[in-house]
């Protein structure tokens, strides 16, 4: 045992759970800020959309696909110079938020896109017929109507990011992933690996449960 007593391990795990949540929620927020407009643009510029622009749609679609096809492990390394530029370091919890956000943004874009596409075309047509502007349709029709589905999509993003953040722990990021690697893997403390895995499972369960409930409350269909 590396730790003198279970209390010490408990505090470490608690602190690193906090770090994981911090990374994941910051990355969710940033990736949603980037991904949401991309998803909206993908929908409205698509064929039959309210601002049909097929060329822009194709270019954006390709960019998003390229972003999604990058393996996360490579993305972290590739982004090191960029991360240093904006955070000052490429190590630690805060620095990990950068690759996490950039990895999740294209995913969020697709999640938002598919949610918005579920909105009945007739409802959008009615809004156009009433004289709505494009901005009004996005903010008053598309997003509110798709809200339940968007929340489920963002919950999915959070869960994915928990997985990614554990991976980031292996290359100098903070959080539960780094505990599993540093104390569990490198120092052969199996009990800590088990503890982190159990914590991650609990986290995912709680987040999914919260997401489902919010989506249910928002859904008026």
């Amino acid at each position: 045992m590396i730790f003198q007593n279970p209390t010490q391990a408990f505090w470490l795990l608690l602190a690193e759970t906090g770090n994981t949540l911090y990374m994941v929620f910051a990355a969710t927020l940033i990736s949603t800020i980037i991904g949401m407009p991309l998803g909206v643009i993908l929908v409205i510029t698509d064929k039959g959309g309210i601002k049909e622009k097929l060329q822009l749609n194709r270019i954006l679609g390709t960019v998003v696909n390229i972003g999604r096809s990058f393996p996360f492990a490579i993305l972290i390394v590739a982004l090191i110079p960029f991360t240093r530029l904006i955070i000052g370091t490429s190590l630690g919890t805060t620095a990990t938020i950068v690759p996490l956000s950039i990895a999740a943004a294209p995913f969020v874009a697709r999640v938002i896109e598919s949610s918005l596409k579920e909105v009945d075309k007739g409802i959008v047509e009615a809004a156009v017929a009433m004289g709505s502007s494009t901005w009004e349709i996005i903010t008053k029709v598309l997003i509110p109507e798709a809200m339940a589905s968007i929340i489920l999509g963002i919950t999915l993003t959070v869960v994915n990011l928990i997985g990614y953040s554990a991976m980031a722990g292996t290359v100098g990021g903070g959080g539960l992933g780094s505990v599993a690697i540093q104390y569990g893997y490198y120092r052969y403390d199996v009990s800590l690996i088990i503890a982190t895995v159990i914590l991650l499972i609990i986290l995912v369960q709680i987040i999914q449960w919260i997401g489902n409930n919010i989506a249910k409350a928002v859904n008026k269909k």
Partner: peptide, 9 residues
Amino acid sequence: FQHFNLLNS
């Protein structure tokens, strides 16, 4: 409209 097209939200 035939299918009313009300905002469900």
